[in-house]
Design a protein around this nucleic acid. Structure first.
Lengths: 342, 342
DNA sequence: CTGAAAGCGCTTACAG
DNA sequence: CTGAAAGCGCTTACAG
């Protein structure tokens, strides 16, 4: 037994109240058709609409116009602290121009990504923002094939021609290494993120490129399977089993760094006294941890805003050429890095 | 110049491909009408649908059925770490039964709440979950008036008869005070949350009730204006200006506690040596902070799930009587509480 | 079991 | 400036 829903007031109710045709009401209530209606009628319609508690049925409007004023967002997991600021940036920017955002968690499972995309297509979303891209990503291909406006955020794909708002990873990694070198570290290891993601891969590449330039050993790279605390811990253990000559670690992101620190605590290594460590992202509360993690600030909220602006531009037919925005990260020095002790 | 969108494949395309009427396709593709169609036809329709890449236009379907398979969620701010787990619980539960969730941030501004609700009504959401309730809340009244299925989560309103998934605040506060008393604290202060919220108010009431029972002074209550770090800091300063005889603080939530700790650091008070402090919520990373905050775990994800189940029950007409679910919090002892020193 | 028709609430090209 | 009509893509009561 379904609930009875109260019948909503429609454009026809307003029309009847004013004594005009409902198409006139539609025009009077539409910001960009309003000027075709006499001001007197507009006024009357607005008053009646307000009095009756009318609000436009976006569903009907969408169906007719074949646009939904909605965009979809694919993220791995809302509970990962990297994403809330990105989403908030997306929401604020989209809502400012009357768009609604629909978010789906995919848990990095391709099947969930596909399902989410289907759902969004069914809701006629006008575009999607993906924070879930792998370097080779069938979902990205699917969007392109289906001609769905798409902007990647944070992560990107290997192939060219896809809109993306990403980071200057070289700059980020270099600023971290410069900092570590200034503290006399000469054996620096890297706990990399998953190599099937652009962030994991590019940071590792930037790391090894930059160490090479400085004639430092680049063999101390261990890639984690996921960007999580637990996988950071595991990767650190693998690294340590292989080599213990390093005095500093550059982690692929903050969660990996936290995992490394957990692993160090397990084996009695002190941060930063024995080993210095850096993160990447600058997720919340890092400054309150013990020790406070030195990291690279990623402008998460702003990236969400930029990705949305880009997407809206594509939807409106403004952006023709694929746009790749590369944002500038910024080193934040805290207490997890200190002068090398060995 | 708007983009040209590729025409989507409709039920008619599938019908033509199979050589049946489109209403037959509609039925064949609808799980609960499928049995009215011969298995052979169903099979053919499904094959054709798959081949053509058909997916149901939920917008059109919603318009006709007058239900959208979407629910709305109102939260103050996604970036407040309390909310992501709640939302994830809502999303997981809703998506499991084919519902989409639309989230809006209201920043605790009544106007934004109203706008968000309008937007959601325009999208024909079938119900809303509110995490933004004030004790007297016009938006709640509006939902009831408009007959929109509504479930409050975390916070509730003073008036009876509104569905809500909340906490056993008495239990939470008592477990904290018991813990503090076991550590010999006799002058315990409370930095309360905003008194126009049920959580702020009920926790303060539980605090003062329970201290009274134990014949302890209940004058050390200072309410913050918002549940934020900054307002926690301010409230602590006000408290300290008034009285400095307390040895322990019960904060209205974790963010307030963090603000108190910041303020203590400013004036050289040590936690837990000089003053013990407890939080409420158990937001992420507390265990990594220095000192790690003793707190009351609120089952955030589960509350999101329960609120959604309740809402779905109302939508389906199962729950008639208003349901109030009171979840059990749980004390988590960490390093911010120790034996009283004065 | 299947088809033909009506209609959900809008928008918009076409008349006037 | 306004009205009448058609139609967006579905679903469903009514026939057969």
């Amino acid at each position: 037994m379904k609930r009875e829903r109260k019948r909503k007031v429609t454009i026809r109710d307003v029309a009847d109240a004013v004594g005009v045709h409902h198409s006139t009401v539609s025009r009077a209530l539409s910001p960009n058709k309003r000027d075709k209606i006499s001001p007197a009628v507009v006024k009357k319609v607005e008053k009646a609409a307000k009095k009756l508690g009318y609000y436009r049925n976006i569903v009907a409007s969408s169906l007719k116009q074949n646009r939904s004023f909605a965009v979809g967002v694919l993220i791995p997991d809302l509970m990962n602290p990297v994403f809330p600021p990105i989403i908030r940036g997306i929401q604020d920017t989209a809502e400012a121009v009357g768009y609604t955002v629909i978010t789906a968690n995919t848990d990095d499972e391709p099947e969930k990504e596909r399902d989410a995309l289907r759902m969004m297509q069914g809701r006629s979303i006008e575009g999607v923002i993906m924070a879930t891209a792998r370097r080779e990503d069938p979902i990205v291909e699917e969007c392109i094939e289906h001609d769905i406006p798409l902007v990647l955020v944070n992560r990107t794909v290997d192939r060219e021609g896809v809109n993306a708002v990403i980071l200057d990873e070289n700059y980020g990694i270099r600023s971290v290494i410069d900092h570590l070198m200034s503290l006399k570290h000469t054996r620096i290891a890297h706990i990399a993120g998953p190599q099937h993601t652009s962030t994991g891969f590019q940071r590792a590449k930037a790391f090894s490129d930059y160490l090479s330039i400085h004639n430092m050993p680049t063999d101390l790279i261990e890639a984690a399977n996921k960007f999580t605390i637990e996988e950071g811990r595991r990767a650190f253990r693998r690294l340590l089993a292989r080599d213990n000559s390093f005095s500093a670690i550059v982690a692929g992101n903050d969660l990996l760094a936290l995992g490394c620190m957990d692993a160090m605590r397990d084996v009695g290594l002190l941060v930063p006294e024995n080993i210095a460590i850096t993160g990447y992202d600058d997720i919340l509360f890092l400054e309150r941890m013990s020790p406070a993690l030195t990291t690279v600030l990623v402008p998460k909220y702003e990236m969400g805003c930029q990705a949305t602006k880009t997407l809206l531009g594509i939807i409106d037919g403004e952006n023709k050429a694929p746009v790749v925005l590369r944002m500038q990260p910024r080193l934040i020095i805290r207490n997890s890095t200190a002068i090398a002790s060995r």
